[in-house]
């Protein structure tokens, strides 16, 4: 199976100096795989830097569209059965690719997520290692496994972290890739994982595929913390509006969201969810269309998705 390793970049020339050679070494070690840098309209000389220093890698100069759009364009342009998406601040280990491709060979698997470690080799406590979720108070609450002893075997997970995931390109295209509803970023990987489970496909966590992630190094310099918080809160609401199809749960979720404004006023909650609600509301039309599509395509219920992704039977 041939794979295209796609590194998504925006103004991360210095990060590419480390991540591109690591990806090239891994692609060479695993056979004949392509490495592509999908550049989201960088204003530094990222594209020229890749072209000058790593001629084996292909540089795609894309118009500004955000993380999801860059991924979608690069995956559509890939000429392989499988694709791997990496953040520009993710440095892969040389043998990270074969376990991912082995797992993709299993029936009904859509995607496989890597094991994320900090640059010093310790287990990261915030990023998607063996993800699971639970609907609570109007939102899907995401959990990540942080106990090393629980991260030793290949197992199902809710979604693959978008910073390091492999998947079947044809299934990706069938799902429509990352949904632009979640522009500029955050929750698009949760969404595609949830939708894949909803169609009866599986998402796995692969502990043998190790990548190092300097968490937030890209985000921290591109966005202010308050902006990141607001984007994430907005997309959490849109995720529920789009994906929560179970009638009773959905009613409870929207009722909980309606109470947020009152809570914000009376208790002063953080983050200010009323603002996030307004931001989400401005994308209501898009959310309605996305929800209608989910309604048509979904074969598992919300409870079945969460149960199956946690290792239970759907």
């Amino acid at each position: 199976m041939k794979a295209t390793v796609i590194i998504v970049n925006h103004n991360g020339r210095d990060l590419l100096a480390e991540s591109v050679p690591a990806a090239l070494a891994a692609a060479r070690a695993a056979g004949e795989h392509d490495v592509v840098v999908a550049d989201d309209a960088s204003s530094d000389d990222s594209v020229a830097f890749v072209q000058d220093n790593f001629p084996e890698a292909k540089a795609l100069a894309l118009p500004k569209g955000g993380f999801g759009a860059a991924c979608n364009t690069a995956v559509a342009a890939a000429e392989s059965e499988a694709a791997v998406i990496l953040n520009n601040d993710v440095v892969v280990t040389t043998d990270f690719l074969p376990p991912l491709l082995d797992d993709l060979g299993q029936p009904d698997v859509f995607a496989v997520g890597c094991k994320f470690l900090n640059p010093d080799g310790t287990l990261t406590d915030a990023l998607g290692n063996r993800t699971s979720g639970e609907w609570q108070g109007g939102l899907l609450h995401i959990r990540h496994e942080t106990r090393p002893e629980r991260l030793t075997e290949t197992c199902p997970q809710l979604y693959p972290n978008g910073g390091g995931m492999a998947f079947w390109r044809d299934k990706w295209l069938e799902l429509g890739g990352f949904d632009p509803l979640f522009r500029p970023l955050y929750w698009e990987d949760v969404d595609i994982g949830y939708r894949a489970w909803g169609r009866g496909w599986r998402v796995l966590f692969e502990p043998r595929s190790i990548v190092h992630h300097d968490q937030g190094s890209t985000m921290a310099r591109l966005h202010r913390p308050a902006h990141i918080e607001r984007m994430s809160a907005k997309n959490g609401i849109l995720f529920a509006w789009k994906n929560l199809l179970d009638g009773a749960r959905f009613r409870r979720a929207v009722a909980a969201q309606a109470r947020w404004a009152a809570d914000d006023v009376l208790i002063g909650g953080l983050p200010p969810r009323t603002a996030a609600l307004w931001w989400a509301f401005r994308q209501l039309g898009q959310a309605c269309r996305a929800r209608a599509r989910e309604r048509r395509e979904r074969i598992l219920s919300d409870d079945e998705i969460l149960s199956a992704s946690a290792g239970g039977s759907p």
Binding site: G198, V254, A258, L277, A287, C288, R298, I299, L300
Partner: peptide, 24 residues
């Protein structure tokens, strides 16, 4: 906001037709 969103989402879902998902 939530009331309007709820109504719109419900209408769009209804217009999309029946779900293939089993009831949970």
């Amino acid at each position: 906001l939530c009331g309007i969103a709820f109504a719109c989402l419900l209408v769009s879902q209804t217009l999309a037709g029946g779900s293939r998902a089993r009831r949970s």
